[in-house]
Amino acid sequence: MGWLSAGDGYEVALVEGRVAARATAGRAAGRQLKSLPRALRDHPEVDRLRRFAAWLDRHTTACVAQVDTWMVSSLPVPTLLLARLWRDEAWQCALRDLVVVGDEPDEVGFLRDATDSGALRVVTLDGETVRIAPRTVTLPHPVLLADLDELREFAAELGVTQRVEQIHRATWRRAEDTPDKVWSVSEFAGGKFPSRYVLAARAASLGYRVSGGYATCRVRDGARVVEASTWIGEPYYWDDSDAETGDLTWNDEDGRSLPLRSVGPVAWSEGMRMAAALYAGRQVEEGKGA
């Protein structure tokens, strides 16, 4: 964005997301000022830029949230759509360097560019930049990536930083010998908190929904929607002390409980990730009696 006139002797612009000013006359002409002059703080152009900056922040947050939804759900995304979105800096920032998978097994790599024609440029594990143009691609959940460890190592070599957490996302895999007719996981139960309010606030701050006595996480796993739930206490006793995390369970879209052996890999990983994140905020006793 260019510099805009803002009264006598000043111009203003958005610089790295903040309103900046520079003088147009005198010794400081053309130089960006360290702070916004008092005379400009209520200027209409400054107010307009502030509102525009706030909109850009909301837009950036929305782009990241949408790409995160595509990734967690491993939904197919049209390459032509990615090409159109790529022109927008906020979308490009959210999408750049995510691992994408095309139609063929070897069409896997870090997304670096999208052309107007719908072709994607990706860097493969061989270090080659190739162009792929399938009708759709997926931004797979990391638990579905067979070469996850190799991708993490290669990302470190390339200095890759993902705006949407994908390859460095914490993942869990269900044990193959999980018994039949087991319906819950207690690995992260018993984490104590000062009150139910504190525990619920932690869940909300991590982006999870709080409904009734549960913190919940809903994801699309393959062809079905599954909701993971962790007990956090009755909502009618917010101010009582000694709240603690409970068992982790999964339900289908109709609310029916699922045995652990029927929980898919993405739903399992995301449910365990939620329960672990809540448990990590528990009170930890210190001292000789801990």
Rank of each mutant, 00 (worst) to 15 (best):
L4S: 04
L4G: 00
S5V: 13
A6N: 01
G9S: 02
G9K: 06
E11D: 11
L14M: 03
R18C: 02
A21I: 08
A23Q: 09
T24I: 10
A25T: 12
R27N: 09
L33K: 04
S35M: 09
L36P: 10
L36C: 07
R41C: 04
R41N: 09
R41F: 01
D42S: 14
R48L: 12
A53S: 13
C63M: 10
C63Y: 07
V64D: 02
W70Y: 14
M71S: 14
T79R: 05
L80A: 11
L81F: 11
L81G: 01
A83G: 15
L85S: 02
W86T: 01
R87T: 13
A90G: 00
W91Q: 03
Q92G: 03
Q92N: 04
A94P: 05
A94G: 02
R96D: 05
V101T: 14
G102F: 00
D103K: 09
D106P: 01
G109W: 09
A114R: 07
T115P: 01
T115Q: 13
R121L: 14
E128K: 13
V130N: 04
I132Q: 08
H141F: 11
L144P: 02
L144I: 08
L145D: 11
L145A: 11
A146N: 13
L148F: 10
L148H: 11
E150A: 15
E150V: 08
R152E: 03
E157Y: 04
T161C: 02
T161E: 13
T161S: 10
Q162F: 13
R163V: 11
Q166P: 10
R169G: 00
R169D: 03
R174Q: 10
R174N: 00
E176N: 08
T178L: 08
D180R: 14
S186F: 04
A189N: 04
K192T: 15
K192V: 14
P194Q: 07
Y197A: 15
Y197K: 13
L199N: 10
A200Y: 02
A200R: 15
A203Q: 07
A203F: 07
L206V: 09
L206N: 02
S211W: 03
A215C: 08
T216E: 15
C217L: 09
D221C: 14
G222R: 06
V225K: 07
V226K: 07
E227F: 01
I232G: 02
G233Q: 08
Y237C: 02
T249K: 12
W250N: 05
E253P: 02
G255C: 09
R256K: 12
L258F: 03
R261P: 00
V263A: 08
V263E: 08
V263Y: 10
G264P: 07
V266T: 15
A267V: 05
M272I: 02
R273H: 12
A275Q: 00
A275L: 03
A276L: 00
A277D: 11
A280Q: 10
G281N: 11
G281D: 15
E286S: 12
A290I: 01
A290P: 01
